[in-house]
């Protein structure tokens, strides 16, 4: 591809190539069972999670080692979040929420390794997560509260003539939740990675043209800055996805805010 670029005498702009799903071994179409780069990077995510939470915590020390502190920090972070947002009865869903959080965080952070693949940049992945949360929580609300769950859409404190209008708005916003929930994550991660790649494409300009003397250092500086921002985004988006899951879970456990 580099040779191709040289022959064209210009810069290579393929900012979206990094998102391609490719078979890991050989060529050919991607079947549902094909081992692809998706498989590889999800497996690495599982390894990272295992390393931190299983090997890190194996000491069970009263005074934790560094690795154990990290594992306990992650545990405490999500545990406190779910307890704070949903109350004490939400704690039994802690393993599920924790699974979402560590998967997204591991995927986002591993995706920051140059040349890696980021599963959470794919709408197919985040949509499964977002709609999975949506369906699970809707079912949970209906099972726990029956039709009383629908009372969430009927604001009893609002004036009577406003209630149907508010109900329509509430229902629409309820069904938009999984869409925004999943697109927010994929959009943030994808946009950041694409921007990084665009700046990276400008970096070798010094080899091609005289403008490179100015452009190359600037683009390297920009890559550094955007990378720092992306580290922040990786953590914040994992946090946002998790806390929104907790907020939705609260609706299923206590519809109507009580």
């Amino acid at each position: 591809m580099a040779g191709e670029a040289q022959s064209e005498g210009g810069l290579v702009f393929h900012p979206l190539d990094q998102f391609m799903v490719k078979p890991l071994f050989g060529e050919g179409p991607v079947q549902w069972y094909t081992i692809t780069n998706v498989t590889l990077w999800m497996a690495l995510g599982v390894l990272a999670v295992t390393a931190i939470f299983v090997f890190g915590s194996r000491g069970r020390a009263l005074i934790p080692s560094r690795a154990q502190s990290v594992a306990e920090l992650g545990y405490g972070f999500v545990h406190d979040m779910i307890e704070e947002v949903t109350g004490h009865d939400g704690v039994k869903y802690f393993p599920y929420v924790m699974t979402l959080f560590v998967f997204i965080l591991a995927s986002n952070m591993l995706g920051l390794i140059p040349g890696s693949f980021t599963p959470t940049s794919h709408i197919a992945v985040t949509a499964v997560l977002g709609f999975g949360v949506f369906i699970a929580i809707t079912l949970l609300g209906l099972i726990n509260h029956g039709l009383g769950f629908l009372g969430m859409f009927w604001m009893k404190d609002a004036p009577l003539f406003l209630r149907p209008i508010i109900a329509v708005i509430e229902i629409v916003s309820y069904f938009v939740r999984p869409v925004s929930h999943s697109i927010r994550l994929a959009g943030n991660v994808m946009a950041g990675h694409a921007v990084l790649k665009v700046f990276a494409a400008f970096a070798p300009l010094v080899l091609i043209s005289g403008f490179g003397i100015i452009v190359t250092p600037l683009s390297i500086l920009a890559i550094t800055a955007i990378y720092a921002l992306e580290v922040l985004v990786a953590i914040i988006q994992a946090y946002v996805f998790t806390i929104l899951t907790c907020v939705y879970l609260k609706d299923a456990l206590h519809p109507g805010g009580h």
Binding site: V21, V30, Q31, W32, Y33, T34, T36, V38, T39, M42, A43, G45, V46, V49, T50, F53, V54, S57, A71, Y75, F94, P95, Y96, M98, T99, V102, F103, P119, H122, A124, V125, V128, L129
Partner: peptide, 23 residues
Amino acid sequence: PNQIFWLLVTLVTIYLILSRVAL
């Protein structure tokens, strides 16, 4: 289908590791 399949495999694996061992 490929992404969704492997995602589900990953999530189940992480869930089992977390809920059975780590947490």
